[in-house]
Design a protein around this nucleic acid. Structure first.
Lengths: 343, 343
DNA sequence: ATGGTGCCTGAAACCGGTTTCTGTTAACCG
DNA sequence: CGGTTAACAGAAACCGGTTTCAGGCACCAT
């Protein structure tokens, strides 16, 4: 220990100056004569003084911290998300508080509690109730990450419906597939809900009848294995498995190959996210690329800005572009450069 | 807004009592008459007063927050880790601050900075310098997660060397394999370093010559694909690929299968961690189970305890048991119950 | 000599809580 | 009825910083 218990008043006494002067020196604000400055710097150096964060935060009435709330952690998606958020927060000298809500039932209360410890919060879509979100926005700047904003709560996301519609159309028109299964739980998150909607819309636009129900599973690789086994056990398996994300697709691929099927000859599989593995499996996965890291970074920037200008008008929501990435798992010969950019 | 700017003094004024009484009521400490208590509760309710965390933390001289420092995020390992940590911290009303150091070069400074905002920190082994670790331990309670503790800094981990030694011996003796490759970067983390050491030791115990160098890659699935391709391109590929974790192994499996090899007939692959996917791929992965979530939870408990009893002696390091999980990727016929428990 | 202007400096107030310490009142006891 | 004690309430100090405000001083122009 040693440097832990040193306060401004202590340094002030040792340097023979007032606390105001110590504060000015340690912050570089205001005018201090060269002599006093040196005396203070010496005392600070000698005793290893570091201003206490709490005192400073209390006086400044800002925490210097950002919150990130998500349902759970799984796969490269959340890794990217957290890292994107962090990469923006830390240079702004803001620490990052996290909260996984899926572990507990009283997540609304937890999030509200978090609001009193940070300057702003990014909440993943669908993790807390609508009511809690509004109360939250009342307390601190909030942005919804990958979900629908509401009133004064801006959101950052991609146009999932259009992107998934484009992918689905590709399967229906280019490959003439007619029996597609959708794997993912629309009720689980706004992302999946929109992807499911885009999947349905693409069918209807072509006058086709989409499947009535998706295969509801979670978003991790093991769930994809499970889903594939369930679908392939059926007497009449689908032509294609359209997965809500790459993790599911990777799992489904493992499941399908494990049953001796050939992809894409016997079964087409597609994903969403363009995770690093998508390009490396065989066959490489046809998917939709979305800029996850950039999404989170954008959210962090929005919050930081809102926190520093308290009375500014609520910023607009942001929609980042996606890109259809056609590889071999859909049946295309090879990396056909059909890559269309979503809005 | 509305409830954001209400302070104790405000409530005290409105309820016609002193701030001390408001504080007593809102904390349930001390004695307050039924009448005053009700007046205060009404005022609190009416104005939606919530005590400010900073004021409270400053007075209590504790932050009510824990820090978690890791190199980067990747795969189920870190998900488990974070969730295990969080599951222990949140019920203790402590928020969780995270810091990914691999994104920046000045991580030592960042960690030291974090120390002034939390009551204790868990640092993944190998993420910061030895010097920084010691300085850190000077400021707040610290525990090293999956790494070597030092002096008064306790650690929580598993016996990687023994576990990997057991796995390696299994391949060498049960399956008679002689040409094993190790994939992973020992310099990258204490975990891998110990696993490499165990791999080498198992060879030497049997009087065999281990490979001189590991295949140095990172710890993610794509790296496993890469490593497999590199090894299999060689004129004389190994009999077995012993991977530093399951992610690498899963990638290697994909890479091997993609090249038309049969596992385990043509090539044996093993992992470490027992990630959820390990049991689901074909063939299922032989690996070592370690209680990652429990590891992190234990670390959180250690820190919380140390933070609440400042002058207690430094707790002992903790080593949790591992379990060899034999599945089919090593060549065993099926789920042979050879599962031996490591110390 | 006088008044004005800037530059430094420190006392004190402030951020929003908790806690000690003192004093009042009422209850209880012999 | 006097005296001790317990319960309760509030004033003020405190946690560790920042910032306002007023005063002192040197310097310059009238």
């Amino acid at each position: 220990m040693g440097n832990s218990r040193v306060t401004v008043r202590e340094i002030a006494r040792l340097a023979g100056v007032s606390v105001a002067t110590v504060s000015r020196v340690s912050n570089g604000t205001g005018q201090v004569s060269a002599e006093l400055r040196q005396r203070v710097l010496d005392a600070i150096e000698l005793h290893g003084y570091q201003p206490d964060h709490l005192g400073r935060a209390l006086a400044a009435r800002r925490h210097g911290a950002l919150g990130l709330v998500f349902p759970g952690l799984s796969g490269p998606y959340f890794s990217e998300l957290i890292q994107g958020f962090e990469s923006e927060a830390v240079p702004a000298r803001a620490s990052v508080h996290i909260l996984c809500t899926h572990l507990r039932e009283d997540s609304d209360a937890q999030v509200l509690e978090m609001a009193r410890r940070v300057d702003g919060i990014a909440v993943m879509g669908g993790t807390i109730s609508e009511a809690a979100l509004l109360r939250l926005a009342d307390l601190v700047p909030v942005v919804v990450l990958a979900g629908q904003g509401r009133d004064a709560v801006p959101s950052v996301g991609v146009d999932n419906a259009t992107a998934m519609g484009r992918l689905t159309s590709h399967l229906l028109t280019e490959h003439g597939l007619r029996d597609l299964a959708f794997v993912g739980t629309p009720e689980g998150s706004p992302d999946v809900s929109q992807r499911w909607a885009g999947f349905l819309a693409a069918h209807r636009e072509l006058g086709l009848t989409p499947p009535g129900e998706p295969v509801r599973v979670s978003m991790q690789q093991p769930d994809g294995v499970l889903a594939a086994e369930q679908l392939l056990r059926d007497r009449r398996p689908p032509d294609a498995i359209v997965c809500a994300n790459d993790e599911i697709a990777l799992g489904a691929l493992v499941g399908a190959l494990g049953r001796g099927l050939r992809v894409p000859q016997d079964l087409v599989i597609t994903g969403f996210d363009d995770a690093p593995m998508a390009a490396l499996v065989s066959p490489p996965l046809t998917t939709v690329r979305q800029p996850v890291r950039e999404l989170a970074a954008e959210a962090a920037r929005l919050i930081l800005r809102a926190a520093s200008t308290p009375d500014a008008p609520a910023p607009d929501s942001i929609v980042l572009p996606t890109e259809l990435v056609v590889r071999r798992s859909c049946g295309c010969p090879t990396g056909t450069p059909t890559g269309g950019t979503g809005k």
